[in-house]
Write a protein that binds this DNA or RNA. Structure first.
Lengths: 207, 207
DNA sequence: GGCCGCACTAAGCGCCCGCTCACCGTCGGC
DNA sequence: GCCGACGGTGAGCGGGCGCTTAGTGCGGCC
């Protein structure tokens, strides 16, 4: 096991794009609290406490509690989109790219479960403008996966009746991992990723 | 269009097991509010207001706000389990029974979306004892689906490497419908049910 | 060494939450 | 025609919420 910093959940938390250090500690504390209890059940006092600060310290780095959620959601969606884009743009058959996309997307949802929960399930807590921004990112996520599926259909690799519906189901399957996965469970993120890649290839009728 | 009572979402709401009438109206109001905003973001004043009552009226029929969630969750899980049991116990091949289970389970999650959202996503808001009761019901849900998958494997109808993992994925796929489905979308609950039944048969490698 | 800037704290404001309680209108039984 | 039972209301309590503000300790720069 590496000596890199880990959370109680055993997840490595980079978040290195967030500076200064105090702002990053507050954001990581917020991710943990939101993932455990949900945005509305989390208090600003709880977030500050987890970060080892007084309640007022939060407002030096963030305008509101909602801005914290917005930042988390934005960074998380960027990362998720980046994972899918990397898989979609690599060389290989549509089946190889789809398997790569699903397995890495699932590994992220399982391994970075706390972040993924906040990203996928707390969207409704954002205000209209922030939500609109995130919804646009989600459409890009959908487009990446649909692109691979369409490539496979065009090349004759896949046998799919409803491309939009199947794409939705594939993403849905991956996203729901954040709901049920636990580090205490019998499977590692890598195992779930491999299993799900196989299941998805079956769903698209890969030859 | 029928003259049966419908909510704004176009869903028929039986809830006929809840009496008296005022208690049922409060419970339906709570389902709508919890589904829209989440348990923690919903106020007792909002629930009572939707039911056309004063805030204090809620406490004549329910001890706490949490008891409302518990009742909703219990009734909803009973209904979901009933749907799966009916499909699992009918006559037919494992493939027929699995397709029936998935399509009816998905139709429920899409058609009764508000209830399903509360049932599937607000579990963590329950206290320890109530949550334990519901978790036991969920294990029975899992067992019903796993039973059909095992039958199919035993009879040679299905080709499945990881029975537990695949069962989990099948249920996961169905449950996530409650997160993304909208009545404004392009698909009816029946269409999604049929699509998902096909996808699941592919996942289990049905001959 | 003196002073400025700023990250941070202690205290607390105003608000709204879940929930309670004293009271009231209505309706069936005699 | 009166009376108790009961479903319902108006007002409000105690508390915790998101957020603010006045003040403090400390590190860097001349």
């Amino acid at each position: 096991m590496s000596t890199a910093e880990e959370t109680t959940g055993g997840e490595v938390e980079p978040w290195d794009e967030v500076t200064p250090d105090a702002a990053r500690r507050l954001l990581i504390a917020a991710v943990e609290a939101f993932a455990e209890r949900g945005y509305h059940a989390t208090t600003t006092r709880d977030i500050a406490g987890r970060a080892g600060m007084s309640p007022a310290a939060l407002y030096i780095h963030y305008k509101t509690k909602e801005e914290l959620l917005h930042r988390i959601s934005r960074i998380g969606h960027d990362k998720a989109l980046d994972i899918l884009r990397t898989a979609a743009r690599r060389e290989g058959t549509a089946a190889e790219r789809l398997a790569d996309a699903v397995s890495s997307f699932v590994r992220w949802h399982a391994g970075r479960r706390t972040t993924a929960r906040v990203v996928q399930y707390e969207l409704d807590a954002l205000g209209p403008e922030a939500r609109a921004e995130i919804v646009a990112l989600r459409r890009q996520v959908d487009a990446e996966v649909r692109g691979i599926v369409e490539d496979g259909v065009a090349s004759g690799e896949f046998d799919v009746l409803d491309v939009h519906g199947t794409t939705l189901a594939v993403l849905s399957l991956c996203i729901d991992v954040a709901r049920w996965f636990t580090v205490d469970g019998p499977r590692t993120p890598e195992e779930v990723g491999a299993l799900y890649a196989d299941l998805v290839l079956r769903m698209v009728g890969a030859k």
